[in-house]
């Protein structure tokens, strides 16, 4: 078997059709994950007793197990829950009618929430306490101080970490291939099996992932420069 360079181009064309789906599968969990992350991070910083220990477990469990486990647990676990709920309340929802994509996005969202909450927490904790005291001193409330002083600074510092989460979850969408979703890796596998050109297809899909990752890093670098511009002469 020699490498067929022209097939790589063909595979690139074929596989790149599902870039939008992969991006959707990446961006939705990351954005929802950031929302979960903000809520979780605040609940943990505010130290509400039982809630904090539950959330600590949530974060440590999702950070301590492989993402493929999350996908499989949701995919096999959620239907059990749905069926039990449906039979007790006589609902007409059936677990088989839920699209597989939903399970993947839900699993990735839960996972992203855990990772994002750690980033946000460390971002908030990295802003000196004096900033919050200064905000109180001029008469702002906690919410105001957070929104106007702490969070903008925390987010500025967290941008590289968020980029890593974005790229990490872009790569995690490749796991949806195990549930035979037609995202980049899934389509690459189909193109490979149909034409019996495995190496060429995976070279092509590798190039696509690489391209998206490099673009994401470049964009985040630009945003970071702009957002942290104010902090140049701070010291």
């Amino acid at each position: 078997m020699t490498i067929d360079a022209s097939f790589i181009v063909e595979a690139l064309r074929e596989i790149s059709k599902v870039i939008p789906l992969t991006l959707f599968m990446t961006i939705t969990p990351v954005l929802l994950g950031i929302v979960i992350g903000i809520i979780v991070a605040f609940a943990r910083i505010k130290q509400i007793k039982i809630v904090t220990s539950i959330l600590n477990f949530y974060v440590s469990f999702f950070r301590g197990t492989p993402i493929i486990m999350h996908i499989m647990l949701v995919y096999f676990g959620l239907p059990i829950v749905v069926d039990v709920v449906a039979s007790t309340f006589n609902l007409t929802i059936q677990s088989t009618s839920i699209p597989i994509l939903f399970f993947v996005i839900l699993a990735l969202t839960l996972s992203a929430g855990a990772y994002a909450s750690e980033i946000i927490r460390s971002g908030i904790l990295s802003v000196p306490k004096g900033q919050l005291e200064a905000a109180y001193a001029i008469g702002l409330t906690f919410t105001q101080a957070m929104r106007r002083f702490i969070l903008p600074q925390a987010f500025g510092q967290s941008i590289p970490n968020f980029t890593n989460v974005f790229i990490g979850f872009l790569h995690a969408t490749s796991l949806a291939f195990f549930l035979s979703i037609k995202e980049l890796t899934g389509v690459a596998n189909i193109v490979a099996s149909v034409n019996l050109k495995f190496l060429e297809s995976f070279i092509a899909v590798g190039l696509i992932y690489w391209g998206i990752s490099v673009t994401a890093e470049w964009i985040s670098h630009r945003i970071e420069k702009r957002v942290t511009a104010y902090s140049k002469g701070g010291f």
């Binding site: 790229i167 790569h171 995690a172 490749s174 291939f177 899909v205 590798g206 992932y209 690489w210 990752s213």
Partner: peptide, 8 residues
Amino acid sequence: RGTPILVQ
């Protein structure tokens, strides 16, 4: 760093 471990 830019490709999933699965593809690698």
